[in-house]
């Protein structure tokens, strides 16, 4: 009998059932497509390669459709995931949503009180993405 009591981070990150691995690959593909298109549109608008107007709006909507496919792939991954992986993901998601709501409402209030001059909501999304990543990392360590 092999006694594997402690696993490294990469052992855990790459572990999972065959279904998990397949769903992760699918999710990554959609996520990269969406993020790639999103970044391309931003760059094109910023450097004036793409004028504002119907074409830019259409491309943005198409990018959002790719995002919806990424969302569906993530949902499928969660539904079919190994139960411990699902628990880790849900704990990380709860933390990310909590930070998003708390951070967003606090920042909005700080603008009203005058403590902050203005606030870009994009930072909330960045904070949520980071907190989700950190949450998954902590969860992987906790259950290893």
């Amino acid at each position: 009998m092999t006694d594997e009591t402690r696993q490294g981070f990469w052992d855990i990150a790459c572990s999972g059932t065959a279904t998990d691995r397949r769903n992760k690959r699918r999710m990554r593909a959609w996520l990269l497509s969406w993020m790639g298109s999103w970044l391309a549109i931003i760059m094109a608008l910023r450097f004036d390669w793409l004028p504002q107007g119907l074409l830019a709006t259409t491309l943005t909507i198409l990018s959002a459709v790719l995002g919806l496919f990424a969302l569906a792939a993530y949902r499928r991954f969660l539904l079919e995931a190994d139960e411990l992986h699902r628990k880790i993901q849900l704990e990380a998601l709860a933390a990310a949503v909590g930070i998003g709501v708390l951070g967003g409402l606090t920042a909005w209030l700080l603008v009203l009180t005058g403590a902050l001059e203005s606030f870009d909501g994009l930072w909330i999304i960045v904070a949520m993405l980071f907190s989700h990543g950190i949450g998954v990392f902590i969860g992987q360590r906790r259950y290893s």
């Binding site: 092999t2 009591t5 855990i12 572990s15 059932t17 992986h85 628990k87 906790r142 259950y143």
Partner: peptide, 26 residues
Amino acid sequence: DWTQARLAQELDVSRQTVNALETGKY
């Protein structure tokens, strides 16, 4: 005389799940 990987395969879960179960973390 099974490895954690073998048990994980039999149960259709990840090896991490078997490890966490055995160590009482989950």
